[in-house]
Design a binder for these strands. Sequence first.
DNA 1: ATAGGGTTAG
Length: 576
Amino acid sequence: MSCFSSLCALRRQLKTSNPIKIITLLQPWTSMEDFKQIHAHFLRSNRIMDSFIAAKMLEFCAVSAQNIDYALRMFNNTDQRDAYLWTAMIRGFVKVRMPEKAIEFYCLMRSEGVQPNKFTFLFALKAYSSIYNYQEGMVLHGKLLKNGLHFDEFLRNALIHMYSKCRDIMAARRLFYEIPTDNAVNWNTIICACFVCGDIESAQKLFDEMPNKNVESWNAVISGYSKCGLVDVARSLFDIMPEKDLVSWSVMISSYVRSRRAAEALNVFKDMQLSGIQPDSVTMASVLSACAQVGALDMGRWIHAYVSKNKLRHDVFLGTSLVDMYAKCGCIDTALQVFNSMPKRNVSSWNALLCGLAMHGQGDEALVLFKQMESFGVVPNDVTFVAVLSACSHIGSVDEGWKQFDRMDKEFSIIPKIEHYGCMVDILGRAGLIDEAKNLIKSMPMEPNVIVWGALLTACKIHGDTDVGEDVVRGLEKMVPADGWCYVLLSNIYAARNQWGSVEKMRKTMRNIGIKEKVPGCSSVEVDGVVHELFVNDKSHPDWRDIYEVTNRINNHLEVEGYVSNPSWVLYNIDE
DNA sequence: ATAGGGTTAG
């Protein structure tokens, strides 16, 4: 769509204006269609394009429109390549997150003998930071020192940023303290750096001392606390901050999503809508993830419609969140449709779909999809293999499970994590190979966790093996203070062995250290767009009698139909 | 021109 009322209007203007005036038509909101008209106009009228105009045109393409392919074609058709033009390309590559290409162009530029300016250095430094290239970052720092450019406020900040990304917090701090500054950007950068290193005290101290706090500073500390796992601290800061912008709301929503507190995330989203600040695709990616966590399909569909209607940027993150939401809510077909319509996919997008299939018992389909993924040349990661192995578990194929497990390290250099061992124990256990499962646990390079023991116990239960063995009990007892689930597992083993004394002892320990019986299971249901959370034996809802009446009737109905309750169908869920 | 936000798995 042209931003002008018609193409004719634009063409009229192009005919009557001079080149400099035409260049001012290139604004951040100018469409690519209008741009092409302007470009064509120049190609027609000026046999050789003025180098200033050519640079502005390319810069628009690379930086504003982020059409890096088009920019590259323009770049290749130019023979006068000055620092400005090179920098526009480098900047464009940084913007579309292709730092390697940015660096490639920076090196090419140098090898062609073009002297970089401070803007070139700024974006080259940003490119090195984003791929954590500490060595080259330091080389660039040296160059800036030689040119005296390290006094430049922008470059100084980029250097602090680079050192903080590359985890050289000391170097970052040295640069920050070297020249005292009121510049909020430098303060915000160093505060973030402290949080990244887990140095909460320094971060808070700097925030308290900071002279000119802005919204970004508040957002930085809120995000910092949440990334350190202190969501409630983040929330209390969020509540008292003087003004909230789009990022503030997005940070708070994603904080709750990250801590698996989806209902609270959705509440914040509702408050955001009341505040009148419009969400963007970053916000929506998190909101959709919250919907996926609680199975809020209606809400998810509404977000999907909102995103399309308001033309929010449909990128990989948003697309993946949509696929995940539909898949987790059981709409595999819709998930597949969204997946197929994505203009760009990455390994996470594939993972979301794979997990969806595996989770809903479509193990064969998941393995077919995995093959397809490989044939597309997408490199799987550790998350992929969690999905693949759980698919193997669903189809009950020990051979396929071992085969994929072996491929991890051999073909992809992915060292199996405890989750992968957990899946293998599950696969072996379900097939009745209890001894093999136990041996695998013994051979693991890490200490087994409660999930691994849980998988083994589930297997014992399925195969009527009441004696799980002393080693399992001892393994669990070792972890008792650390993990709430152990109490549940152990109590049930003791009960199965009729060791009621031990059961009572366990209950006492739990009471002593303040664990209430057990962490209640929680499920949620969405009614008319409101998410309700229900805990095991929850009687807080005013209509709890009616609710239990209905669920009991459903259970009875399922049993009549021959369904045997087996809660372990969910990935890793513990059978208790 | 620089700083603050996002997806899958656990």
